[in-house]
């Protein structure tokens, strides 16, 4: 068995992608699980609940798998040592596609860094119109008058 130097930065980054996906999917299956069909007619509610349970199971399974992948990669990265070929193939299957040809060649240079996405984001990045205005000097009246009466205007 040959041993392989893995790119631990890339692997950790990929773990974060799995992690973010797992969080999103966790929220998803819980939401679905909590959506009741009860206020609808009983026959409709029953069909709805069958649909719901089937997909709660599937989404939960994908969520759990994603979480497990994140943990596998984090565990592997934590060892900071070279791994045997079989273990490395396993890690490779959890990595972004673009990573696949990068590290096997012992004569090759350092692997290219993949660019993982930061996981599901609930909203687009802040728009560019959000820069605060520069404060201007106040041209208005003095805010602290003397308490002594001065009479009318």
């Amino acid at each position: 068995m040959s041993s392989v130097e893995a790119d631990w930065n890339a692997i950790t980054a990929a773990a974060r992608v799995w992690d973010g996906a797992a969080d999103g999917l966790d929220g998803a299956w819980r939401r679905l699980h909590g959506t009741t069909g009860a206020p609808m007619a009983p026959n409709v509610a029953a069909a709805f609940e069958t649909f719901r349970e089937a997909w709660v199971d599937e989404v939960k399974d994908v969520a759990t798998t994603a979480q497990a992948h994140a943990e596998s990669l984090d565990d592997a990265a934590a060892t900071y040592s070279s791994v045997d070929d079989a273990a490395y193939q396993r890690i490779r299957s959890l990595m972004p596609w673009s990573y696949r040809d990068s590290t096997i060649d012992p004569d090759g240079g350092p692997p290219p860094m993949p660019t993982p996405s930061p996981g599901p984001s609930p909203s687009p990045p802040p728009p560019s119109d959000s820069t605060p205005a520069t404060p201007q000097p106040s041209p208005g009246p003095s805010p602290t008058p003397s308490p002594s009466p001065t009479g009318g205007d």
Partner: peptide
């Protein structure tokens, strides 16, 4: 949520 995760 699923669609976001799927695209990611």
């Amino acid at each position: 949520s699923m669609s976001d995760a799927q695209e990611s």
